[in-house]
Nucleic acid binder design. Structure first.
Lengths: 244, 244
DNA sequence: GAGTGGTCTAGACCACCAA
DNA sequence: TGGTGGTCTAGACCACTCA
């Protein structure tokens, strides 16, 4: 039931609706790519006006959790669609030309969480992890040395075979194989000098400057589910950031 | 007059209102920090409903051009307020502690636009520029070597004295002294090796990795008005980026 | 208490899409 | 042609601020 009364801590109706919609998304009532019920249907389900449902959906659409398509309906966002696959990739070519992206999986192994990773992923120290290292190649040139860590528990059975079946699209795989959708990420950027291992992988001199991108990705409820460190060669690529 | 008819290229009413509001902002009818008329007043001025004005304002507020304050009114955003001054600064301390920021002006001189700068700032090659170099110090440690270029014409009389009068708050100065408000910026990040001049200024070894942040700032109408290159030491600071 | 933004409603109509 | 999201209205009422 929806609380319309004057509660001690006031909460707008559309905000309550938003929570209900989010719960349906978490519960799997509507899966990634699905169309959700029309605004009018939802309004009658929740016993509110269409405008109120609309405002709740607007908010979720603004967070890229739902996608509105005029004339068609409102859909659950997914990392599976072409053009959205690289939603979190901000690295673009300086010349602006289209690029062919390739994946070379280096290792996929089990590990235990040290204190730092445990804290970041909200796990206990020593928790089981899966650790992936790979090389990303842009138009034939290796540009990113990627180090990815996820908790083992929710990603049971994740191995190199499965990664290659998904062509290295990690976010797409998380969704399809494990029902885990990343909705948000935070990145911390610094400049670092290439270590010998990375220099070799990217075919650089030792100490060459690299852009270090540390990313934590979050699923519903702001739960961190992936840690990632990308070391990027930025000779003819750059990281784009829009400030408003 | 407002076009409610079915025009060839359809444009929602609130979008037209948004344009009218923006024109009043550009024209200086409401200056930075001012309160604009209430939604009801604007609705009657433009002969539309309050809801339509509201949607136009919502959009401008979403772009940080206006600021709504419940119970008080809607205000023109400004870079002059405490806490908003550093709106475009994404560099934060790794430890998260508060920092004292200091400015050391190195040079302020005249220059001519080369082809690259001319293109970026939408000027003719050879156009008069003002060029500023400075050192930004965080809690006593020099961290950013800043190189700033603006067209001379709209910033007539900008010199080192005036910069120091404004304590190095460039955006605040642009507004107060020249009526030019930056509403948006694009940044391109790369990792570079410190040149000798920069290494000396920041007290580093030659070739040390630095985060290079190239920024173009835009005023109303997406007009580029400032180019800036910051070279940042990221030993215990990082650039924060939120992905949605 | 007066004025402001914020919420919510009910209903009309428009633009877009697919069958 | 029917269904979906998108716009617009008029009006009621609520929450916040300040004199």
């Amino acid at each position: 039931m929806i609380d319309k009364s004057n509660s001690p801590s006031y909460r707008p109706l559309y905000d309550q609706i938003k929570v209900l919609l989010t719960q349906s998304l978490i519960g799997g009532e509507w899966r990634p790519g699905d169309m959700i019920p029309s605004e009018i249907d939802l309004a009658s389900r929740f016993k509110v006006s269409q405008g109120t449902v609309r405002k709740a959906i607007d908010s979720l659409a603004g967070e890229n959790i739902l996608i509105r398509r005029q004339g068609k309906g409102t859909f659950v966002a997914t990392h599976n669609e072409e053009g959205i696959k690289l939603r979190f990739l901000r690295l673009t070519s300086a010349s602006g030309q289209k690029e062919v992206l390739q994946n070379e999986l280096l290792t996929c192994s089990k590990a235990k969480a040290d204190i730092r990773i445990a804290k970041v992923l909200e796990l206990k120290a020593g928790a089981a992890l899966i650790e992936v290292k790979r090389l990303l190649t842009f138009s034939g040139r290796p540009l990113i040395y990627d180090h990815i860590i996820v908790p083992a528990a929710p990603f049971k059975g994740l191995n190199s075979t499965r990664i290659e079946e998904n062509n290295g699209s990690m976010y797409s795989m998380y969704e399809t194989e494990y029902g885990i959708r990343m909705i948000r990420a935070e990145e911390r950027l610094t400049a670092v000098a290439a270590t010998s291992a990375v220099a070799e992988a990217l075919n650089l001199k030792l100490g060459a400057p690299l852009l270090s991108i540390e990313r934590v990705s979050y699923t519903y409820g702001d739960k961190p589910m992936e840690w990632r460190l990308g070391l990027c060669l930025t000779d003819d690529h750059h990281y784009m950031s829009e400030l408003e």
